[in-house]
């Protein structure tokens, strides 16, 4: 039991990192970034071209943050004033472009990526032992989620971002240039997705559709947590990760684990339409 819960937390780590980026971007820009899954995939593929896993861990998020900021300035920004549907379509189109570019360059087969040296062993937890790399992934995810929480709730930058998220006009009126923060926040969200991609490379199949498969689940996770709620997204990600692992381990039917996340989403939406930790949208 304990080992399955632990394993679920590792699975939840990926959901959490991707969902966190999605939630931060949605909170600040009101943009549902469909391309987030493709950025996760790009993170994994960029890791292949780096000299080592450790360099990838640092450089890939930086590269994707820069790429994300360019994207925001050149494309997303232009559609921000229009109906949100336009940006949804734009990012969906970008997803297809990224996927096909990667297919064209790397082919559709999975690309090999070794477990980083030093993390190939196992960690003994007494009752069970667990691959060291997975323990590392969980630790990284926990550290980053904590870091983001700290940044948002305990620093001046976080204060501005939160204020801009909740009452953009009022924040503007207080003399803070809200527009200036939009681009870095978008880049930051992309960096998180890229980091998750790097972490996924050694333990999952690296192929062009890896993000397309994941992003649907992440959307459901974000809705469960409450759109725009950062804490909610992270909490929901870990809860879904654990539930998924337990359902796979103890139920005889794959159907339940397959639809579990959507089932939870439906129940949560019926009970609290704005998600577990979301607040009702105030009428504009």
């Amino acid at each position: 039991m304990a080992q399955h819960i632990f394993n679920g937390l590792v699975g939840g780590s990926f959901l959490a990192l991707v969902a966190l980026g999605l939630a931060v971007i949605f909170g600040m820009l009101r943009v549902v970034n469909f391309a987030h899954g493709a950025i996760y995939m790009l993170g994994a593929f960029l890791a292949l071209s780096m000299p080592s896993f450790w360099w990838a861990l640092i450089l890939v998020p930086l590269v994707l943050a820069a790429g994300g900021m360019v994207l925001e300035r050149t494309l997303v920004h232009r559609l921000a004033k229009l109906d949100p549907l336009y940006n949804f379509l734009l990012t969906f189109g970008l997803t297809l472009i990224f996927q096909d570019l990667v297919k064209w360059r790397f082919g559709v087969q999975s690309t090999p990526y070794p477990t980083p040296g030093g993390l190939t062993g196992s960690v003994d937890f007494g009752a069970f032992d667990f691959p060291a790399y997975r323990v590392f992934v969980l630790a990284m995810a926990a550290l980053i989620c904590f870091g983001v929480w700290f940044l948002l709730s305990r620093t001046r930058v976080g204060l501005i971002v939160r204020a801009s998220t909740e009452r953009p006009e009022l924040t503007q009126a207080l003399g803070i240039n809200v527009g200036r923060w939009v681009t870095p926040v978008f880049g930051f969200g992309c960096a998180l997705a890229g980091l998750a991609g790097v972490l996924a490379a050694p333990m999952r199949a690296v192929h062009p559709l890896m993000g397309a498969d994941l992003i649907i689940v992440v959307f459901a996770v974000v809705v469960i947590g409450g759109l725009g709620s950062i804490f909610g997204s992270v909490a929901a990600a870990f809860v879904i990760g654990v539930l998924q692992a337990l359902s796979e381990a103890y139920l005889d039917s794959a159907l339940v684990s397959q639809i579990l996340v959507y089932l939870v989403m439906a129940v949560v939406l019926l009970w609290r339409p704005s998600g577990l930790f979301g607040r009702e949208e105030s009428p504009a």
Binding site: H4, N7, G11, A205, L214, I216, A245, E248, A249
Partner: peptide, 19 residues
């Protein structure tokens, strides 16, 4: 014998490997 979800969105089979 265990059926695994198909397609497997997370690409993760660790539950079965632990078991």
């Amino acid at each position: 014998k265990d059926p695994a979800p198909f397609p497997n969105a997370s690409g993760d089979f660790s539950t079965y490997l632990l078991k």
